[in-house]
Amino acid sequence: MPSGRRTKLFFDGGCRPNPGAIECAVVLKGVTYYQPDYGHGTNSDAEWLAAIQALEVARQNGERDIVLLGDSTLVVTQANGTARCRTAALEAHRARFAELAHGFDSIRIRHIGRAQNLAGIALARRHPR
């Protein structure tokens, strides 16, 4: 039974260059889960893979009532069904996300600013300028 308190997971993905090698990060309760090599793709692929990784991290940690927080408008709107996926690759990511979402008591996905995204901050620390 849900406790009424959602667990927040921050997610972010990127690639250098774009397209290029994908990396993702998820932050749950102050712990960063970093995936340094998710293959090759675009920034959109990276953001979707980070959202998918957030669901996997939540499941592995026994979380049932979650809110995913990310700075990708594309992923948030497509996951919420307010924007359509314009490529087969994005639709495949959305379908995988929906498949993994089953079994949770509650999932919300919300857009936040880049400066508030703890996962984005964690990725940026790996690439000092």
Rank of each mutant, 00 (worst) to 15 (best):
Q35I: 10
F104V: 04
L118C: 06
S72I: 09
A92Y: 04
A89W: 02
R16W: 03
C24A: 15
L49S: 06
A124Y: 03
R114W: 06
E23C: 01
A51L: 06
C15P: 04
A79F: 00
T87Q: 10
I109A: 03
R16P: 00
G81T: 02
P17D: 10
L100I: 07
G62W: 13
A89N: 11
L9A: 01
F97H: 00
T73F: 05
S72W: 10
D45N: 14
D71W: 09
P2Y: 06
G70Y: 07
V27K: 01
T7K: 10
P17T: 09
R5G: 03
P2L: 02
T73N: 05
E56K: 15
A51Y: 02
N80A: 05
Y38T: 04
Q35F: 15
I112K: 00
K8M: 12
T77A: 08
S44W: 05
Q60P: 04
V31L: 09
R114N: 12
L55E: 04
R94W: 05
T87P: 11
G41V: 05
E47R: 06
Y38R: 14
A58Q: 06
Y33W: 10
I121F: 02
T77L: 08
N43W: 04
R64V: 00
N43R: 04
L28D: 00
V26N: 05
S3H: 09
D12A: 15
